[in-house]
Amino acid sequence: MQIQRTGDAALVAELGTFATQQENATWQADDMYGNMTYWFRLDTPALLYPAAVALKAKGARLTMVSACRRDTVGTSGRYISYHFALKGIVYTLRVTLTDTEDSTPSITPIFANADWHEREMIELYGIHVTGQPNDNRLFLDEKLDAGLLEGAVPLSVMMNGACTTDLWERVLNGREDGEEKK
């Protein structure tokens, strides 16, 4: 038995008005269990705020914000995906940042739980979030640079946790020797 679970048609239509007028700006896909997901590509980051207000009005919940690395989009600019859930259906708003529009509005005033997501985005990707009230580090150690996942980190720095052969040396030397590092 396969039941299609589709989203709120009015909401989909409303979000559609924020989406780019180009081709493929909105699309939908269902998984093997019949749960539909909706995707909207927004024209400018500024449209995120009214779109979030519309979702909030329907009672949706922000589930996740995922940012992507700059180089993955090609020349310049990158995607940020905002995922919302309403009655089991996921709606994703995708914002494209370009060189000219390189910041996204904070939606923390609408969804209180956006705080952590936005701070994470700031520190891992160095994205500007206008109006984000909290500028403390969330996860990264002070020793690490913000915008770490931006991609420009030298490999040698990335690899500083590299494995050594210590264990195997120890196994090979045999435990009976009782070598102890003092």
Binding site: L140, D141, L148, N160, G161, C163, K181
Partner: peptide, 18 residues
């Protein structure tokens, strides 16, 4: 011992026995 599945991550210091 080695960092296990997380080895090579930017966020790890050294293996413990260092």
């Amino acid at each position: 011992i080695s960092g296990g599945v997380f080895r090579d991550s930017y966020s790890l210091a050294e293996p413990l026995d260092h």
